[in-house]
Design a protein around this nucleic acid. Structure first.
Length: 547
RNA sequence: UGUCCCGUGGUGUAAUGGUAACACUGCAGAUUUUGAUUCUGCCUUUCUAGGUUCGAGUCCUAGCGGGACAACCA
């Protein structure tokens, strides 16, 4: 196979490194902080990191960046692991930055010993003031000139719990006038008398991101440490620490994070939606979380295809959510069995069909699938059709049912509308139709040609289900550009529940997360809220509509 | 009035000094027992100005535009 696909800029770097013999094999890592659920932006990162290792024969570690015990929880750890596996990837090792706390502590001592770190007693307000601004240099304070011995002693005291939260920090001693704000003596360690989900109460000082992430990369001998663009300014510090600590020189590379129309990827804001009950949990099918889209009915295959299609580059982007939906439809079209379900029922009585009679017809499950097979559908005198599939005064290009008009009932017969029954208000309540017995699907000898084909369900055999119709979570296309509260942009119609939807009997056998195409209505999957008495289906995505 | 990153159709992404292309979207048509799928066609592109070069989307300079950076968050 000679499929030629151009490389993204990171693949080019990897290939160049491999070609130059810089590495024999590569190692990447996916480093989530366990303070929330994974979302579509993480999917991009996961596909990139794991994809690279798969493509070039390396390995990928799953490493939890758990250096802030106050926001992190095991619940998140468990769900993150589940999401990564669901997406279809397996990590080489499951690791935690907290595994390295002792090592990190020793790194800090080494830095102090080299005169490259000091204990600062300033408050965070004072430190902010001394730091300057992007256009003004910062100032040194008196703590900066403490002796190595004093720093060593004080840092040990911090570790031993002799000082309260916020009273002291350990800072790198770099340059308070540096043009890069991150190089103006960044905080390395802070005191937090907090219980950690893994290390318990063993520590009361915790390293900051900049003193944990790069060091963890280095300890694991990660060859390519890939992160998003907001970490570009951190790279200088990342390299400085590796150099001063004299440890394995991992290289950091940055790519542009995923942004999508009508949604939002901020973990902090997603948490807010959950906490304020504006959605029904992290796995609400409207959420851009992996657990949300999974419950919605998206498939890992579709997500991986999507990540492949959006590419990897360094410029800011806003991906049309329609592209994700395209990928979802593309996959579901191949794998989802078809079923007939009537959402807004209108009764049809077949006047020339014997009362009490019924017969079994068959319909293909999926003509797109290799061995899609068939299912049985009962047909009888009284049927439900979609109210929308009948019009009393149809426009020219309408080719469904109208008075005196004919239509094909999918996988069944051609019927003709003979009489429209209305109530006192003039509301259509029922249609009386005749059917053409020799037009039966597969053995049609009627010679009739009708353009319209509609779905239907036998009223006698229908099973009642609930359907949840989802729309975009936000009404604003670019949520990154708003200046007011993001909650002002929530779509009030993002969820519409339709009860009493009539489904063909074959659907009653559905199991949770089973995926179907409801003919002409969209793709649906069975929600875990379903009970024996009542099945609940989520609309994953509509069908393309070119009406 | 700083430093860094980035500017290619409507949206993404390619083209690695040699004919600007692929996908999505949109529009038009064909096929269709799903107005789906499938198929065909069309619309629409290198931020600006200089420079290097036989030749620049690509290299250089400047400008313009967008983004990032002043958490004891990651």
């Amino acid at each position: 196979m000679t499929e030629e696909k151009s490389l993204n800029f990171i693949e080019e770097i990897v290939e160049a490194d491999l070609a130059a013999g810089k590495h024999q094999t590569i190692a990447t890592r996916f480093p989530p902080e366990p303070n929330g659920y994974l979302h579509l932006g993480h999917a991009k990162s996961i596909c990139l990191n794991f994809g690279l290792a798969l493509k070039y024969g390396g390995k990928t570690n799953l490493r939890f960046d758990d250096t802030n015990p106050v926001t992190e929880e095991v619940e998140y750890v468990d769900n993150i692991k589940q999401d990564v596996q669901w997406l279809g990837f397996q990590w080489a090792e499951e690791l935690y930055a907290s595994d390295y706390f002792q090592q990190l502590y020793e790194f800090a001592v080494k830095l102090i010993g080299k005169g490259l770190a000091y204990v600062d007693d300033s408050t965070s307000e004072e430190m902010a003031k001394q730091k300057g601004t992007p256009t003004q240099p910062g100032k040194n304070n008196n703590y900066r000139s403490r002796s190595i011995e004093e720093n060593l002693k004080l840092f040990a005291e911090m570790k031993d719990g002799k000082h309260p939260d916020g009273s002291k920090v350990l800072r790198a001693k770099i340059d308070m006038a540096h043009v890069n704000m991150l190089m103006r003596d960044p905080v390395l360690y802070r005191i937090k008398h907090a219980h950690h989900h893994r290390t318990g109460d063993a520590w009361c000082i915790y390293p900051m991101y900049d003193f944990a992430h790069g060091q963890s990369d280095s300890i694991e001998q990660i060859t390519h440490s890939i992160c998003t663009l907001e970490f570009v300014p951190h790279r200088e510090l990342y390299n400085w620490l590796i150099e001063k600590l004299e440890i394995y020189p991992t290289k950091q590379y940055e790519f542009a994070r995923l942004n999508m129309t009508y949604t939002m990827m901020s973990k902090r804001k997603l948490l807010q939606l959950v906490n304020e009950k504006l959605v029904n949990g992290w796995d609400d099918p409207r959420m851009p979380t992996l657990s949300g889209v999974r419950r919605r009915g998206y498939t890992p295959e579709a997500l991986r295809e999507f990540c492949d299609k959006i590419g990897v580059a360094k410029r800011d982007n806003l991906i049309d959510i329609g592209l994700l939906e395209f990928c979802v439809r593309e996959h579901l079209n191949k794998i989802a069995e078809r079923r007939m379900v009537v959402f807004d029922p209108l009764k049809v009585v077949i006047t020339n069909y014997a009362e009490g009679k019924s017969e079994i017809l068959t319909s293909e499950n999926n003509t797109e699938a290799e061995n899609g097979g068939h299912r049985e559908m009962p047909f009888s005198r009284e049927l439900w059709i979609e109210r929308e599939d009948f019009m009393e005064n149809p426009p020219k290009k309408y080719f469904r049912l109208s008075p005196g008009g004919m239509v094909r009932l999918k996988s069944a017969f051609i019927i003709k509308c003979e009489e429209v029954i209305k109530d006192a208000q003039g509301h259509v309540t029922e249609l009386h139709c005749s059917y053409v017995p020799e037009s039966r699907s597969g053995q049609d000898s009627s010679g009739l040609h009708v353009k319209g084909v509609i779905h239907w369900v036998s009223a006698l055999h229908a099973t009642e289900v609930e359907v949840r119709l989802y729309d975009r979570l936000f009404v604003t296309e670019d949520m990154g550009s708003i200046e007011d509260d993001f909650k002002n942009h929530l779509n009030p119609h993002s969820l519409k529940v339709v009860n009493k939807v009539y489904a063909e009997p074959a659907l009653a056998k559905a199991k949770v997360s089973d995926k179907f195409q409801f003919l002409r209505m969209g793709y649906f999957c069975l929600d875990p809220d379903s009970t024996k008495g009542k099945l609940v289906f989520n609309r994953t995505v509509t069908l393309r509509d070119s009406k």
